[in-house]
Design a binder for these strands. Structure first.
Lengths: 117, 117
DNA sequence: TTTTACCGTGCCATACAAAGAACGAGAAAT
DNA sequence: ATTTCTCGTTCTTTGTATGGCACGGTAAAA
């Protein structure tokens, strides 16, 4: 037998295989596809989805956010969009500090105006 | 007039006031109380909930996680839990800052009362 | 005292999010 | 040719999160 494609590593995965990886129903994978723009598997002539490894990575990320971290789908979408996920709390802490600083400045100014008058 | 409690800032808030702060229904505040252990307002003789500022800060944190960051209630619970075991809790840090602010307010008010008398 | 205005608990209703099921159909492997 | 997997669409179910009601109690104001 001449040249035969050897299966060292799969190039594409079917929806059933992907669903199995995450132990979810195929319908859920399709459902997420409708909810998340980043999921965009190619389709063959027949229309069947062909998932590449990067595709699966993205699904994995969504799975992580939704099933492990407890985001709503919408919350997960926002996390993905903003590209962040961690570190936001620090920003908030800094904002709070700035807020307090402004408050202190206002107190100082009040004091200054009273003693000057 | 001798010693009279000055109402610089309220010590306790009713559920209605708290609900109003976050523009939600009082029933939601009660519901969260059942879902989140960290919410534990004291109750007066009659049974009415009395919220202190730290209580409100905790509610604020939950509000932030659920309404702004898009966590499910369960997801928010886990964030809160894991944040505590991490030792340095960001919420507590922010709460601490708030406490400091309150302290500064008390200093300011003391100053004001002296100059007024 | 009567009214007004909360608040309590407990239960039920709604709204929407999330997921799954059911349908008929087609390709491909066995 | 029977089984197995997939398709898209649509329908149905489940679950979460929230709101609202009924009914009673308390307190303070009128």
């Amino acid at each position: 037998m001449p040249y035969k494609e050897r299966e060292i590593e799969k190039k594409y995965y079917s929806i059933g295989e992907v669903a199995q990886m995450f132990k979810v129903a195929p319908s859920l994978i399709r459902y997420w596809e409708g909810e998340f723009d980043i999921i965009n598997p190619k389709k063959d002539r027949k229309g069947n989805r062909r998932y590449t490894k990067p595709d699966i990575q993205k699904i994995k990320y969504i799975y992580h956010l939704v099933k492990e971290k407890g985001y709503t789908l919408q919350g997960a979408q926002e996390v993905i969009k903003s590209g962040k996920e961690a570190g936001i709390d620090k920003v908030e802490a800094v904002q709070k500090l700035q807020e307090i600083k402004d408050f202190l400045i206002s107190i100082r100014d009040q004091y200054n105006s009273k003693s000057e008058s």
